[in-house]
Nucleic acid binder design. Structure first.
Lengths: 227, 227
DNA sequence: GTCTATAGGCTGATAGAC
DNA sequence: GTCTATCAGCCTATAGAC
């Protein structure tokens, strides 16, 4: 079988596989499954295009392998997070940090992969991505439900909370390149916020937005400026 | 010229154009530009595929026409919103309502179109979508800045506010079908929230999250349950 | 304006030498 | 495992009849 290695991994084949996974990720993230071509991926990986068929059984096989490894890693990170201690506020913050690290460092482009799959749900969507997404929803749900139980959060819907928070994050990181692109053309207004900036903003928004006590409608006077 | 009509619009050609625009939107939204085929679009529109070239000058021409009309309408709605009166809170709420109406009724699929473009920024991205996005950012910026000036909002960054809010909205509506799909397979946890539900949630999150007075860290006792 | 027929390019995949 | 050569299929676009 091509996809499961028979020889020790200390061979050129390992390099080939990983080069294809890396180049494939880049192309699939930017152009989607249909938009990417195996020739371009192979060229970018510096290997012959026939090797995509040999190692992964075809274009779709490469794509599935990429989704698998990517979301497997995300899920592992979530598992560790769910077991760690702290207040619900801290856990939510740590989840946002994890998302950023994955999106910017460990698995660049994973938000775009996720979004593309969710927008064009084929058969594979449910089987492949579904369980991983469900795990993500579940972590948020546990945190939010605990926050509510401990009277730290308002009685919000955990699923809607997940959608608003993770949706905002996925959108931001999936469209970072687009903003850069616009920036170069001078077509985008204002600054080009970094991932860290956005994550800090999101933490503030969520923690204030979820907090129990409602602020008074009329502000008395100017106080506590957010730095 | 094919794209600008010379004859009165009371002809079959008008029907053909609109059938192609409608079918094209569906296909482009679901499969992206590369993933959609003109043959399928023409079949779905019930017209001959050569007419795509006649009326729009080709596949790309049809796509551009779709982006143009879609985002033109969004922008018009925003213009009206910006001129209407009310508190910053009301304006933000009305903007979210407008987004939902556009995404679910007037221009189904527009969030997906926006996302796909933003994820794969080509040359046309800046020229075509850029100005429309800039207009969107600008409306949020004006509202948020007024809210801050009037001491109703915290001193938040308007651009980050826009990204979190509109990003969450775009994500939600672009992935609605995906959730339905998962729901059928039983792979998605929990309910399947409607657009209206999500918009109401987002209003609450933003207004609480942006509000001036910070809630105390320790809740005194259980009060004011959010309905 | 609409349709049929067809051209021409590109894509993913495979057979077979090394 | 890697590479070259090649194929069949699909896709967009066009020419020309009506």
């Amino acid at each position: 079988m091509p996809t499961t290695r028979t020889h020790p991994a200390t061979q050129r084949s390992e390099h080939t596989r990983e080069a294809l996974l890396r180049a494939g990720t880049l192309r699939f993230v930017e152009h989607g499954f249909e938009g990417a071509s195996v020739e371009q991926i192979a060229r970018e990986a510096g290997v012959n295009k026939a090797l995509i068929n040999y190692h992964f059984g075809g274009k779709r096989g490469l794509y599935v392998a990429i989704l698998d490894t990517t979301f497997g890693e995300i899920r592992e990170g979530l598992r560790a997070l769910a077991q760690s201690g702290g207040t619900p506020e801290q856990l939510l913050g740590r989840m946002l940090d994890l998302f950023r690290v994955m999106a910017e460092e460990r698995r660049p482009g994973f938000p775009a992969l996720m979004l593309r799959e969710a927008m064009a749900p084929g058969e594979r969507f449910g089987r492949l991505i579904g369980p991983h997404l469900a795990a993500m929803v579940n972590v948020v749900r546990l945190i939010v439900e605990r926050g509510i139980r401990e009277k730290r959060f308002r009685k919000v819907d955990p699923l809607l909370t997940h959608l608003a928070m993770i949706g905002g994050m996925a959108f931001f990181f999936a469209t970072q390149k687009g903003r850069e692109h616009l920036a170069v053309q001078g077509a985008f207004p204002g600054r080009f916020p970094t991932g860290e900036e956005f994550v800090e903003y999101m933490k503030g928004l969520m923690l204030n937005g979820l907090a129990v006590e409602r602020p008074p409608r009329r502000p008395r006077s100017e106080r506590s400026r957010a730095k």
